[in-house]
Design a protein around this nucleic acid. Sequence first.
DNA 1: ATCCTAACTGATACTCGGTATCGTTAGCCG
DNA 2: CGGCTAACGATACCGAGTATCAGTTAGGAT
Lengths: 140, 140
Amino acid sequence: MTGGLVAQSSVGPRRLTTQRQLVASALHEAGRTVSAAELFAGLRGNNPRIGRATVFRTLDLLVEIGLAQRFEGDGHVYLYTSCAPIHHHHLVCRVCGGTTDIDDAEVDALIRSVHRRHDFVLDHASLDFYGTCSSCPAAK
Amino acid sequence: MTGGLVAQSSVGPRRLTTQRQLVASALHEAGRTVSAAELFAGLRGNNPRIGRATVFRTLDLLVEIGLAQRFEGDGHVYLYTSCAPIHHHHLVCRVCGGTTDIDDAEVDALIRSVHRRHDFVLDHASLDFYGTCSSCPAAK
DNA sequence: ATCCTAACTGATACTCGGTATCGTTAGCCG
DNA sequence: CGGCTAACGATACCGAGTATCAGTTAGGAT
Ligand SMILES: [Mn+2]
Ligand SMILES: [Mn+2]
Ligand SMILES: [Zn+2]
Ligand SMILES: [Zn+2]
């Protein structure tokens, strides 16, 4: 699951370090959206020899290569979720942090409709939706 | 356009101060999404007697009562736009900051579809879309 | 018009998520 | 191995947003 870290990109070789494996697997095992601070705290508990900056850098890298996705959390914090590197959209629960993949077809229909009416190029990466999942009490 | 500041809420009376009028009208005249820092700088240029915190507080207030809407900017900064206090969604151009209102009908269709399939309550306030408008060069 | 009081303001200090720096470590290739 | 250099971690730093609090002012009451 972390094999995707070995990059085939043109910006230089990527190294599969133990820290990157730790961050990637911690994110994957979280099973929900988590902040960099959360991940850092959890990793420090097990292995005190990991740096804060490394967690931030690795999360950026994972997003860049498509193995994670970034969301905006409520307290103006970035949240991350482990993700397959194929393009799709999410429902993000604001209560429990859980994410659910959306069928691209219904979203793409909206994108095409909007594009037809407004001549506006949607940035697909940002088309994720926030709310409350069925197993969480309806907030508000 | 600033009359809405006089509140009828249960959290105490709201006062229509000169600072609030300044912020509200500056935001309205911007005609696009702007950050709190931008507004503050512009207001300071004309009237040095306005505080940074007041700009932030007033923007929060405007969002709270529905006269402005908050977005997430690229540099992890909040952007604001003056807005009619009726529920609707936006296209936000990441290049020029311009916003366009979307017909609610097409968005609501998606919301209903998602809710039918996933039993997920969408937070309507967050359903805004980012991209590049037709009068801006296609980024990337 | 004047008073009164609570809402509001602005200077300042602070919090904290994220980033830049830089000397050190370690992945990877030959 | 040995060497190159990506990547690491400690630390300092930045900047958006918030808390504090003494002083100010809007606006209702008299
Ligand atoms: Mn996913
Ligand atoms: Mn609008
Ligand atoms: Zn949930
Ligand atoms: Zn534009």
